[in-house]
Design a protein around this nucleic acid. Sequence first.
RNA 1: GGAGGGAUGUCAGAGCGGACGAAUGAGAUAGUCUUGAAAACUAUUGUGGGGCAACUCACCGGGGGUUCGAAUCCCUCUCCCUCCGCCA
Length: 422
Amino acid sequence: MIDIKFIRENPEKIKEACTKKKIRFDVDHLLELDAKRRELLKSIEEFNAIKNQANKKIQEAKNPEDRAVVIAQMKELDRNSDDKGEEFRKVEAEFDSLMLLVPNIPDESVPVGDSDADNVEVRKWGEIRNFDFPIKDHVQIAKDLDLVDFERGTKVAGFRGYFLKREAMLLCMAIWQYATDILVRKGFTPVQAPALVNKEAMTGTGYLPQSKDEVYETHDGMYLAGTSEVAMMSYHSNEILKEEELPIKYMGFSPCYRTEIGSYGKDTQGILRVHEFMKIEQVILCKNDKEESVKIHEEITANAEEILQGLGLPYHVVLNCSGDLGLGQVKKYDIECWVPSQEKYRETHSSSYFFDFQTRRLNIRYKTKEGETKFTHSLNNTGIATPRVLIPLLENWQQADGSVKIPEALHKYLPFKEIRRK
RNA sequence: GGAGGGAUGUCAGAGCGGACGAAUGAGAUAGUCUUGAAAACUAUUGUGGGGCAACUCACCGGGGGUUCGAAUCCCUCUCCCUCCGCCA
């Protein structure tokens, strides 16, 4: 959510953000509602002030007759006043729902563009291997080594369903443990977060109302979150923190659910785009300070890079263009890992900051040392997501004989150093 | 699933139709005392909206209602606790 005062004073900046983010939003209509709302509120308040004064008189009235007179006057006043309450509530409701749709303003460093095609590569890491044998894609590797059962996955869980088996499952657990060790060492508090969450949590983080098609809703009005960010951000909703506690760094771990309704027909093979997966997420609350947000954004991006480097996966970091930013995001880097069979980089991480967009919705504030109350800033980035990361891992580490080597960083978590056919 | 009890400021906790934006305690901030600290004492200390300001309006879990007037009464939703049942 954006501060209405800021919108009033800078409507052109919001309009510009709409254009850059390719979002249709009628700023002028919002401001009209805002004016109307304030006008109604003023007249209601004036009426309330009169009533409050009259009530004081009723209390001060010495004898019952005086009292009765004032009460009669009061009733008369009530009858003659036109009740603006209902109109106000209507205007307020529309205003509130529109406020949830005002986009945050992209940082100046964000390139203007329409889609991911306009994203800009900022750096690359790792050697892209030159295979001297015909390579397999991850689906073939998984089938040959009996690591994923897609047929039964579909039978039991429908389209995009899968069973992860044997070494693949152990590998995932090793990857979680490996990533957890790195993040805990960096001061993150590990938390197993609920994936089943309420509407406030979804709205507060900005997944509702704008992305409601991509979210599973349960029969009793709960939601399956697409990321533990939803629960971890909501963890401190309606709280006032202390400045000394900041930054708060959580490593949220949870299953994640996505309908993928916007991506019918895309990546239908394998485990790239699935409805259900596991993810370790970095979630940060920090001071209301742009420089602090920028600094931590680079840190959490570097954390993810460190995790990928340990796994020996070539990647690049791209700066997302304005059209590829979510409603609340100020700036976002995607980290994409090299997928040999596709000869391109595919997204495995997404690192973004929001300033106080989410924390206004969730009402997460802190008291500064000077005693001021401010909204915190929030940021998040993937730590590691499985099984998606198995795609670059299996493909980049495949060997001519059909086996797959395990990167050394994972050896201590596994009873094997390679996966080969039985 | 059944039966009761509860939700109040940063925290604990009173209030149960008008003098309550809310007792009291803790915490925090400032000051006195002290070489310094602790203790003690004194003062200040909720949030949000409108107005340059004086001021004013709203907020006692959320939403409705009754009343001239609601933290207090009624309805409803959410959550928490206790007991019984059920499951592990």
